[in-house]
Design a protein around this nucleic acid. Sequence first.
RNA 1: AGGGGUGUAGCUCAAUUGGCAGAGCACCGGUUUCCAAAACCGGGGGUUGCGGGUUCGAUUCCUGCCGCCCCUG
Length: 326
Amino acid sequence: MMTGFATYSATDWIRPALENAIYLTGPTASGKSRLAMEVAQRTDSEILSVDSMAVYRGMDIGTAKPTLEARETVPHHLIDLIDPTEEFSVSQFVVEAHRKAEEIRSRGKRVLLVGGTPLYLKSLMCGMFLGPPADWEFRRQVEEDVAVHGMESLRTRLIQADPLSAHKILPNDIRRMTRALEVVRSTGIPLSHWQTQFERMKMPANSRAFVLCWERSRMHERVNSRVEWMFQSGLLDEVRQLITKHGQLGRTASQAVGYKEPLEYLHGGLDYSRMVDQVKAHTRQFVRRQEIWFRSMPSLQRISIDHESEMGGIGERIAESCTASN
RNA sequence: AGGGGUGUAGCUCAAUUGGCAGAGCACCGGUUUCCAAAACCGGGGGUUGCGGGUUCGAUUCCUGCCGCCCCUG
């Protein structure tokens, strides 16, 4: 058949779980970053950021990046990797994370993963199928095709190419259907054949994983006041500067909460208070989805918090349980 | 104080000549393996301001009270 496919192998595409690490996650505004500083210092670790938006340079306030001071005290990695005009993806992240983890270990330090992008986190904890890179031209064609012939034709196409994926993916989920087609098309092997990592969720070897849990209503309060704070700290100016410097932001960066709304406001599509409300609502919704992910990941050890004042004790406990286990 | 208007889901508002009270947003649950802060799927919500009256039946009509808005003094 098509011999070109032989050049691809599972080892190129499948990344195993990232082992020998401390994972610390929690929803947006749960206090991860601050806690991470303490844990890092107590465990002699360097921090690997697990954040899909902190990779963009110049997007500082809206992503609540760690302060320069914090970054001088403890090395942080996978922050400010690229310009907001560039594309980024899970697979790039996973590849980079493994590389950085090696570097950190070669310095005799431990790896502390900190961040709230659940897909990235899970991809590290479970390992993932990278597969062939995005083919944007192909995706555009599929989109056009759907606009003309409708979702049904896409679905029919997928049922023929990869019936298992067609069964698994929800009928209107054009993105995943497109991706599934993209993979069979360029590899000759259905995506459903490759993707097996997420099913056997277990703790990576020699690792600990923690998730910060607040009551939902407290999270809403924390989010609302964080968003207020971001605008007071000059978020709008930051967005203006990004526009001045880059013109238009890239596909991924421009959809970040705290950026897409100000962009719309600056283009005159929203009034100010409505924009602020939307940033708050979108952040709250993100928090909800993060928590849904965390619930589905049983290897995360839940740490319930009721008051900010408990943070110190929690950092100490996490650090202790990490040094004890090694 | 007098005149007019208004009160329905957390919010903004619908509801035919009186006939099972809806929509958007918010909120909640879920899916998630190269856009993931994205995308997709699903869900629950109401003593219709309060009390009386008419009616088989009242968010709708009548009436008293309360709250808010506008106008006039």
